[in-house]
Design a protein around this nucleic acid. Structure first.
Lengths: 113, 113
DNA sequence: TAAGGTACCTACCTGGACGTAAGTATTGAG
DNA sequence: CTCAATACTTACGTCCAGGTAGGTACCTTA
């Protein structure tokens, strides 16, 4: 797996935790304020419920996300970023900046979609 | 595609360019000095030739990598990072740092492999 | 009785990322 | 005439992230 190499630059672990289609976006959304499941579903309209819950669970297992259950009726669950999650989101900021700055150049080649 | 959202945080374009299993590693390897095809193949022993050339071509198309052909015999090709490539690699540094710092915590949950 | 809103869970399927293995063109060395 | 070494190219197969669609349990309102 070229593990030694991948880990030597630290990106292996990072990508294993934030990789995939949705996690970065979810982390970004709960970074500032706790969000309910249904709220996230509405904020990311193209995600399926299965994916949303799956990503949240994985992020919870990785210690990026805190899950708080309110024993009410109807049920209510809030997801928020842990300090670790916030630190990861911070580490993503430069990449996001880069993406914004060069979005056009890149978008040009992917004009479709 | 939740494009507006994904782009609003800039990570969409960035991931579309550096995502996947190999690109970040390749970029990291050619960042400091030009590398030959066979050299990269040796440095990333688990990559197949097909994947290597495919990733290099995509990165070239995205303007991250420069390809220089020496018309010699035997043939010789050198790949190097463009300024854009270097800037992207810079943007990845904080993420790599984060990965290094938390590699253990993460690795613990993926003990296998 | 039934309809609607939470927050999930489960089985099944598809597309594309990725891997494997073989072939190409060139030329010098033996 | 064959072999080695370069940098690819091509056909084919596999596997899993992600998508689809339906179901669960609970309570409220009408």
């Amino acid at each position: 797996m070229a593990k030694k190499l991948a880990e030597s630059c630290g990106l292996g672990p990072a990508f294993s935790v934030i990789g995939g289609k949705w996690k970065a976006l979810i982390l970004w959304l709960i970074r500032t304020e706790p969000r309910r499941f249904g709220e996230l579903k509405r904020l990311v309209p193209d995600i399926s419920e299965k994916m949303l819950i799956q990503q949240l669970r994985e992020m919870e297992a990785h210690g990026l996300v805190h899950r708080k259950v309110f024993h009410e009726v109807p049920p209510r669950v809030e997801y928020s970023a842990t300090p670790l999650g916030v630190s990861l989101d911070d580490a993503l900021v430069p990449l996001a900046e880069w993406g914004k700055q060069h979005a056009e150049r890149i978008g040009a080649q992917q004009a479709a979609e």
